[in-house]
């Protein structure tokens, strides 16, 4: 099944509701975003065990997160606190790679509650600098 959006055609696969937010380690590295610790913490997506199984993904394997705006590769993590059907990404460049800039006149983008599709991938997770390069040109 395909859906036409403002941006592109996306394949509707394993649908999740994507939210982003703060974590302690993300906060600790707010002034150190080029560090490995930040990369390990923020370039990730938390999913419930059931969702991971549905995707056939083990913890620390790469997944591709697709939204109507864009796509990004991150590592999957299992998190028991995240309910089925919800994907949590720490706030930061990876999560924002799939957030639309449209604020619907509110001034605030929708950082939480984004329709997303997640799939297993063999592609590599981009480092901060590589990820920022994708915005150039």
């Amino acid at each position: 099944m395909f859906v036409c959006t403002r941006y592109k055609w996306i394949k509707m696969g394993t649908k999740v509701n994507l939210i982003s937010g703060r974590t302690t380690v993300q906060g600790r590295n707010l002034d150190s975003k080029l560090s490995e610790e930040y990369f390990d913490e923020v370039a990730r997506c938390d999913l419930n065990k059931a969702d991971l199984e549905k995707l056939g993904v083990a913890a620390d394997e790469s997944v591709k997160v697709n939204t109507s705006y864009g796509e990004v590769i991150v590592k999957a993590k299992e998190d028991g606190g995240t309910p089925e059907g919800i994907a949590f990404m720490p706030m930061g460049p990876w999560a924002n790679a799939v957030v639309s800039g449209d604020t619907h006149g509110a001034g605030m983008p929708v950082y939480k509650g984004i329709d997303a599709e997640i799939e297993k991938t063999g592609e590599k997770v981009l480092h901060v600098k590589e990820l920022m390069q994708t915005y150039m040109g």
């Binding site: 707010l30 975003k33 705006y69 864009g70 706030m91 930061g92 460049p93 924002n96 790679a97 799939v98 957030v99 639309s100 800039g101 449209d102 983008p109 950082y111 920022m132 915005y135 150039m136």
Partner: peptide, 16 residues
């Protein structure tokens, strides 16, 4: 502040 990390990708594109 760091919009490169905290703005939606779509907004960063123009900033870049």
């Amino acid at each position: 502040s760091d919009p490169g990390a905290h703005f939606p990708g779509e907004s960063i594109k123009h900033l870049a």
